[in-house]
Nucleic acid binder design. Structure first.
Lengths: 212, 212
DNA sequence: TTTGAAATCCCTCTTTCGAGTGAGCCTTGG
DNA sequence: CCAAGGCTCACTCGAAAGAGGGATTTCAAA
């Protein structure tokens, strides 16, 4: 808009090509200035503290330190920080985690790309930017039942293929208790068995595949 | 190199930001010309037939039609086509499928980005471009046992959480046969149960999570 | 031709899962 | 205070799953 108030932007993404693409898109706006880049959540938090950008574009799935954790840290240091998530993933859990951590906007990478600029301008006006597509996923989470912390913990072990007995000893509880939790998880996720529970949990972003 | 022989490039990726990033990177080379873009495998095959680019940059996981299928089609129409895969995923199965389909190079998106240009130049010299990181994954596949077509088919159903009985009726075979296959799958993937088999298969790119 | 791998099927046996039911303890929020 | 939900455990029971044996046919490679 006005060249008197350049908008400073910090880009966070572990993919070089994506960072480059964002620079290219943002360059088209005369009042946008990319003041820094980070390739993981840890770097992002440090860079934000130093640069205090008007807007931070944040990927979610990054090595070392994920985007959600970075959002938490940044908002803890600066509650007014404006953070725009740009993620591949549309799991309702990812979306919810990012927004409750303090993100003000959420874009999907496969969206047409002409949304980046208006999203940033929206955040600068103090308004959120949540596309309907994203909001729908969030709504589906509210409708469906939410796993408790303990249940989430169990799902993580289910993903590793652990048997109930092993989960029990890992968590220091009885196998009966594990079975009880698993039963509740199956009901909440509306699946028939633990294997389906794993794929649904992965799709919804409740847990992620272990790296390598 | 020489401005007399501009190298024409087709970009295929479903993410706008990535396409933009590639354009930005390729623009720096005076003899590179991006002649077209495609956002899925189907478009890529059509665009390639029309444009006959010197090099095609290809993502693997795309909606409608995946990259591997696109590579097959393009190479069927033009066996000399030079295709450079640029993928997030490092599952040994993805890598193997792309290379046997006819890809001449394989880059990972999280690589530093300064590899794109040399990779293209390498392909133009008729040489492959397989980073050690990628080659290692490929080697790990060769070491480990490879699933047969039938076993792969069964794994797809395992991912959906189907019970042996349901898999049996879906494939028109006996439950005993399914159990036999599952047993072999567990042995080949070196896992304890079907749930772990699912996560390992997903990590290795043997199967993918169903969309939505 | 022999060898081997893949796919099919069968049988036994043990372990694990998951449904069903119930119950005690603790914390949090009306 | 009390209800609600989360976490814990117990017991039964039928249904799967998986280990461990074989066995057959087919088909392609050595």
């Amino acid at each position: 808009m006005s060249s008197e108030n350049p908008i400073s932007i910090l880009i966070t993404d572990d993919h070089f090509v994506v960072r480059e693409g964002l620079r290219s898109i943002l360059r088209r706006e005369a009042d946008f200035t990319v003041v820094g880049e980070a390739s993981n959540g840890h770097e992002a938090a440090i860079a934000h503290a130093r640069l205090r950008p008007d807007v931070t574009i944040m990927d979610l799935r990054m090595p070392v330190c994920g985007g959600v954790e970075a959002i938490r840290r940044i908002r803890a240091a600066d509650p007014a920080a404006r953070i725009l998530v740009l993620s591949n993933f549309e799991g309702d859990e990812d979306i919810h985690a990012a927004l409750t951590a303090g993100a003000m906007g959420y874009l999907l990478k496969h969206s047409s790309g002409d949304q980046v600029t208006p999203a940033i301008r929206s955040l600068m006006l103090g308004k959120r930017w949540i596309p309907r597509e994203v909001a729908d996923h969030l709504a589906s989470r509210e409708r469906g039942e939410v796993l408790s912390d303990r249940e989430r913990e169990i799902v993580k072990l289910l993903v590793l293929g652990e048997a109930n007995k092993q989960i029990a000893s890992a968590l220091g509880i009885t196998e009966e208790t594990v079975k009880s939790h698993v039963k509740n998880i199956l009901a909440k996720l509306q699946v028939r068995d633990r294997t389906e529970a794993v794929t649904v949990a992965l799709r919804r972003g409740i847990v992620h595949l272990p790296e390598v």
